[in-house]
Simulated assay, not measured.
Amino acid sequence: MLGLLLLQVLASCLWLGHSEVVTPFASCPQFFYSETPPNNALNPKNPAWICQRFRNSYHYATLYDRDRRIPVYSAYKYQPGDGKEPPEWWMVEPQLIDKNVNLKEMKRESDLIDQHHFTLEEIEESQAVLEDYEGQKDLDFGHLNPSDHMENQDSKMATFTLTNVVPQDSSLNKGQWNIYQSKTMPQHTKDCTTTYVITGAVPGNINIAKGRVNKPSHIWSAACCVVGTEPTGAWGAIAENDKNEVETITLGELEDKLSNLYGGKVTLFEKACPRE
């Protein structure tokens, strides 16, 4: 009886502490095919599972590495729309500052400081801040979930959070990776009812911003095409983050490459997505 009471008390405490940084993606499983995230081989030592929420809606999901201050991956549904380009209001995640904070949506740094009385030091302890990316030579804000893959202005704006970007080689970001995102993806997805995408970054050996933010060694992306309710195709892409080259490969080949890079068997999608 005492054990049951303790369990009930624990459950109540967990509910009271509920936030949008979740384990694992309890509030936003819809962004993964069959509601199945990648396996634990990609998990960093100090992870945060973020349901990316903006203007009271979820737009995608991100696994974030608190120590390296970069996302491991962002998962979303490919739904490019005609919404006008959003303003580049770079945001951060309040719940990475304090898991008990009653702010469930991404916010601009200035709003957190002016309206909610956080300090810049408190914000930057848990994540990258805008200053980390300013003045970086030959590096861009590399969106894992690009705004052009979202359907309306709110969802496009939601991609402008520093929990969704990595330091990406400028020539790659503006060159072959942009071609993959803007031309290859539309070609591959034209017959799909729904396309589930997971785009990530492999941690590298170089840090920028006085050692605060990791520069990934590789950028990668995987997609699973569903027609009706059945997955009919899948593919992957990977690029070294210092060359303007993208290799388009099968999902199985991408998982094999990532398994070698991470040192453990990587599974990105539920097994029904074709690997060949």
Results as ranks from 00 to 15, higher is better:
Ser110Arg: 07
Phe141Glu: 00
Tyr133Met: 01
Asp138Pro: 03
Glu151Asp: 13
Phe118Ala: 01
Ser126Leu: 00
Glu151Leu: 11
Glu122Phe: 07
Ala128Arg: 04
Asn145Trp: 01
His117Asp: 08
Gly142Cys: 03
Val129Thr: 14
Leu112Glu: 03
Asn145Cys: 15
Asp138Ile: 00
Asp138His: 13
Lys156Leu: 01
Asp138Phe: 12
Ala158Gln: 05
Met157Cys: 02
Thr159Glu: 03
His117Ala: 10
Glu151Asn: 13
Asp140Phe: 03
Glu121Met: 06
Leu112Asp: 02
Glu124Gly: 07
Ile113Cys: 11
Ala128Ile: 05
Ile113Arg: 09
Gly142Pro: 10
Gln115Asp: 13
Met157Arg: 14
Glu131Val: 02
His149Gln: 02
Asn152Arg: 06
Phe141His: 14
Thr119Cys: 09
Asp154Leu: 12
Leu139Asn: 07
Asn145Val: 00
Pro146Ala: 11
His143Leu: 00
Gln115Ile: 04
Asp148Phe: 07
Gln127Thr: 07
Asp114Pro: 03
Leu120Trp: 06
Asp132Leu: 08
Leu112Cys: 05
Tyr133Ile: 07
Leu144Gln: 07
Ala158Met: 08
Thr159Phe: 10
Asp114Phe: 08
His149Trp: 05
Leu112Val: 04
Met157Ile: 02
Met150Leu: 00
Thr119Val: 01
Ser147Trp: 12
His143Thr: 03
Ala128His: 09
Thr119Asp: 06
Gln127Leu: 06
Gln127Trp: 09
Glu134His: 08
Leu130Glu: 11
Thr159Tyr: 08
Glu122Ala: 15
Tyr133Asp: 04
Asp114Gly: 03
Lys137Ile: 00
Thr159Gly: 12
Glu109Val: 12
Gln115His: 10
His143Ser: 06
His149Ser: 15
Asp111Ser: 15
Ser126Ala: 15
Lys137His: 04
Met157Ala: 15
Met150Lys: 04
Gln153Ala: 03
Ser147Thr: 03
Asp154Phe: 10
Ile113Glu: 06
Pro146Cys: 03
His143Ala: 00
Thr159Lys: 09
Asp140Asn: 14
His143Asn: 01
Asp140Arg: 06
Asp148Trp: 05
Gln115Trp: 07
Phe118Ser: 00
Thr119Pro: 09
Gln115Cys: 05
Tyr133Leu: 07
Lys137Asp: 04
Met157Lys: 14
Glu151Arg: 13
Ser147His: 09
His117Ser: 12
Asp111Tyr: 11
Leu144Met: 12
Gln127Ile: 05
Met150His: 02
His117Val: 02
Leu112Thr: 06
Ala128Pro: 10
Ile123Ala: 11
Ala128Val: 01
Leu139Ile: 13
Asp140Gln: 13
Asp132Ser: 05
Glu121Leu: 05
Leu139Gly: 13
Asp132Asn: 15
Leu112His: 08
Glu124Ser: 13
Thr159His: 12
Asp148Tyr: 09
Ser155Arg: 05
Glu151Ala: 12
Glu131Asp: 11
Glu125Arg: 15
Leu144Arg: 05
Phe141Trp: 14
Thr119Gly: 11
Phe118Lys: 07
Ser147Pro: 04
